[in-house]
Design a protein around this nucleic acid. Sequence first.
DNA 1: GGGGGTATTATGTCTATACATAAAGCCATC
DNA 2: GATGGCTTTATGTATAGACATAATACCCCC
Lengths: 232, 232
Amino acid sequence: MTRATPTGWQAVHDEALRRIQTREWPPGARIPGEEDLAAELGCARATVNRALRELAEAGLLERRRKAGTRVAETPNRRAQMSISRIAEEIETRGARPGYALIAADDAPMPPARRHALGLGADTPTRHVEALHLADGAPYVHEDRWISLLAMPGAANADFTVMSANEWLLRHAPFSHGTLDYSATTAGDAAAHLGCDTQTPVMVLDRATFGPDHPITWVRLTYAPGFHLHMKI
Amino acid sequence: MTRATPTGWQAVHDEALRRIQTREWPPGARIPGEEDLAAELGCARATVNRALRELAEAGLLERRRKAGTRVAETPNRRAQMSISRIAEEIETRGARPGYALIAADDAPMPPARRHALGLGADTPTRHVEALHLADGAPYVHEDRWISLLAMPGAANADFTVMSANEWLLRHAPFSHGTLDYSATTAGDAAAHLGCDTQTPVMVLDRATFGPDHPITWVRLTYAPGFHLHMKI
DNA sequence: GGGGGTATTATGTCTATACATAAAGCCATC
DNA sequence: GATGGCTTTATGTATAGACATAATACCCCC
């Protein structure tokens, strides 16, 4: 019995990955069926299934019933990034997080945004503007609107100490959303970020939805020099 | 027996997600054990395990042996993005992809990059510069170095028709790597992108590694107006 | 040869059972 | 009270067996 690795689905995963990387299983080729692999590696089919499923989710394999499993020709690998509290993000970068509320008012959401979000003109919202600091220096400018329909509690929440970002993470129902990064000039945020209005900066527009309703829309304008780092 | 949904791990997943979203299981709370849930929902423990594992991988639950499963207080949700062929990326945006090679030569990799990649000064590399088009308009400028140590075939490859991006996807062993997005001025790429050198643009620096050696380093400078879109 | 229905087959999933493993909590000891 | 080891327990994983499902491949018929 040829069993280089001990056992376990991870060992099968690694062995399959090795065969893909060494082109023992070249791109486009059909690989042995689960039963065959299980017999060869001395484990149950479920174990092989788990391993191959992970590789398929990572985009390295393509699986179809009856057709079998093939090595992806041009793998669409997925990059992952964790969306977390801004304070945590700053700590991860090895800096001391800070926070300063700029304004909390009832300024209306720009009509274009309201439309894109599917919010009616009569939906009450709260507007919060704040600055997050890293070691005392501006890190990111937050310009946010919260739907009071979805989050009535936001009307009375105190955002002077806890940021709206964190308040929502704690109080909003888990949800889905969209992220949209783009490069632009600092513009109005320049004054808060301590740079010129023409300086190129990264902007993140994020819309967040609950099970039913839109919850919040935020524009984060990062200070110059910001890098968005991801791993494959 | 209360079984709102048919059966299957996905049903269990959805039911658990519903309880999290409705705060029936509030943040920080410990949820019932796998055996209890299996009994309640009328399925096997393995089915519950699969469902809860997916939710944990999505960052909504935190699982620890003996301690049990808790709803995450501040969920670190992971945003996903698929890294694919540039041509495919352009097609996804509903445009006709185009490609034009600018230069393929032996220009040395900038020392700082070579260092960061862990490549020795004597490692031979090939340099490729190209422009990708969407409906005939500049989409992204590609400035790439390929290690001939890892990819000897790149020395003789013809990049006039197939881009280095695609060539590598087809010929390089699957691997891991890092992505680094930042905002900067168009600079040298401005001439190719048809914009001013001071225009803010998105830049992606990507390093790719094989099982052993670094394979390639590329700087992609996107045309103004580019948006990086992700979903949570 | 083309069209359509059917048998075959590889993956997808569920089940029940068993053992492995991490770690929380308890207890005895110092 | 602190410390170290032991017990308990919830999750992690493996297994064999079974059925579900999708879709290819084949065959029959026209």
